[in-house]
């Protein structure tokens, strides 16, 4: 068995990103799509932490720290938007949300 190197982590991260993308494309529920977006962000985080570890530098971890903070803010705003949308349209399915105008 080869020792665990950066490529292992990158493969896991790539697969996780693809899973998230697949969810965004296939699922029809707005909230689940949002969760899959979080999954994609996490996959990027994993790649950054792995590269930062195997390069012996901490800058990647700082970037991940920033990404986590921005993601938390983004989740708050996005969920508020979804709730506001639900109040107007009574649905969270993307198939029912085809008009730009409320």
């Amino acid at each position: 068995m080869t020792p665990i190197g950066p490529q292992h982590y990158l493969i896991v991260s790539g697969l996780l990103f693809s899973l998230g993308l697949l969810g965004v494309i296939l699922r029809r529920n707005l909230l689940v799509i949002y969760m899959c977006l979080e999954l994609m962000l996490n996959a990027a985080n994993l790649a950054l932490v792995a590269l930062s570890h195997f390069n012996g530098k901490l800058d990647g971890q700082i970037v991940v720290f920033f990404i986590i903070t921005v993601a938390a803010a983004e989740v708050a705003v996005g969920l508020a938007l979804i709730v506001a949308l639900y109040r107007k349209r009574q649905t969270a399915h993307v198939e029912d949300l085809t008009a730009l105008k409320l």
Partner: peptide, 19 residues
């Protein structure tokens, strides 16, 4: 857990707390 394996203990804690 993967973060812990990568010696990023602080980020693992932040990940659990925030996410």
């Amino acid at each position: 857990g993967l973060f812990v394996l990568l010696h990023a203990f602080f980020l693992a804690a932040v990940q659990v707390l925030v996410y």
